[in-house]
């Protein structure tokens, strides 16, 4: 049964394990530094479908299919699937998962959704509400651009602070058994330090990441040095710098163990992605294709995975609202 430790953190004493995981990505991500790690790389970002939204759904479906196949589980053996994406009404998930027939709990946590879905899956398994639960999320550069920004072929310049939405999906099967275990989790709070620039998401999300990491460390009485790595979702280079500076003010130096999935997934110079990658699929695909395999190989043992999300919509931005951030944290141990 889940157990509360400290004010904000929940331990999962039965150690729900990540039994299987898979990442499906687009060709740009496949061309990046982690290219050889992904389970599936789409040759063409349309995935052979008629729309970008369908392509994103296909990515999510593919990630779940591969993750299930790796441990020979059928969809009917999965009790719950926690899923979400960036699209209005989460259509990336609902259409991608409609053929599986698995009870779906739809989530929205913007780019933090991988940690959000994973912590929910771990809670459900730990509480005995599910024998097997799947956590999955996706994003697609083209479907995100048309919803949040401009048409793809519109000619414009992106500022150096802008980030590139990852085309990708990651899926984890959580259950009891051998594997990397979820030890504890800290759900995020909405944190807003007044950033309004939609082209500087890293800056908008960094305070949320700092808040969640700080609360986790306080609740568990640990410090960054106790972990092999602390991964954030998609802060990019600017957000990562701000996160470290914010934690400096608290007397915590994160630099030695901190890595950001948004910085890792692309070669920023060669692939022209400015401040780094972003999107739900960013932390999801890096988790499933790099972090978990590294843990399984024994190279990383004690890891914090803290995915970050910017909770704005085009409407709130147009109405002059600032961009609130959220960050959910999952403590993983191999």
């Amino acid at each position: 049964m889940p157990q509360r430790i400290g004010q904000y953190t929940v331990a999962t004493p039965s150690r729900p394990a990540l039994l299987s995981y898979a990442a499906a990505v687009g060709n740009k991500e496949g061309d990046g530094p982690l290219g050889s790690c992904f389970d599936y790389i789409a040759e063409d970002t349309t995935m052979g479908r008629g729309s970008w939204e369908q392509a994103e759904s296909m990515l999510q479906k593919t990630a779940v299919q591969i993750a299930l196949k790796k441990i020979d589980l059928a969809a009917r053996q999965i009790d719950l699937i926690f899923a979400g994406d960036l699209l209005n009404q989460c259509i990336g998930s609902t259409f991608g998962l409609r053929d599986f027939g698995i009870p779906l709990i739809g989530l929205f946590g913007a780019c933090s959704t991988m940690a959000l879905s994973l912590l929910n899956a771990a809670l459900a398994v730990d509480a005995g509400a599910a024998r097997y639960a799947v956590a999955v999320t996706s994003s697609h550069f083209c479907s995100a651009e048309r919803q949040f920004r401009q048409p793809l072929d519109y000619g414009g310049q992106r500022p150096p602070t802008a980030q590139w939405t990852v085309t990708g999906a990651g899926a984890c099967v959580v259950g009891h058994g051998e594997g990397i275990a979820v030890e504890a989790l800290t759900p995020g709070r909405v944190v807003d330090l007044g950033i309004k620039d939609a082209n500087n998401m890293g800056a908008a999300m960094a305070p949320a990441a700092a808040d969640t990491i700080l609360r986790f460390l306080k609740d568990t009485g640990t410090e960054p040095g106790d972990y092999d790595r602390i991964f954030t979702g998609d802060l990019g280079v600017i957000g990562s710098r701000l996160l470290c500076e914010l934690l400096d003010k608290e007397g915590i130096d994160l630099r030695a163990v901190h890595r950001d999935c948004g910085v890792m997934i692309f070669d920023r110079e060669r692939q022209d992605v400015h401040a780094g990658g972003s999107g739900c699929g960013c932390s999801a695909s890096v988790l499933c294709a790099h972090i978990l395999p590294e843990m399984a190989a024994g190279r990383l043992k004690n890891v914090l995975f803290c995915a970050t999300g910017a909770l704005m919509s085009p409407t709130s931005s147009q109405q002059g609202e600032s961009i609130p951030g959220i960050a959910h944290l999952v403590h993983l141990r191999a």
Binding site: P160, T161, I195, N200, A203, P207, I238, L242, L246
Partner: peptide, 12 residues
């Protein structure tokens, strides 16, 4: 935080 962000963000 706005001042921190401006310092961390490279200009166009």
């Amino acid at each position: 935080y706005d001042a921190m962000t401006n310092k961390a963000s490279p200009p166009s």
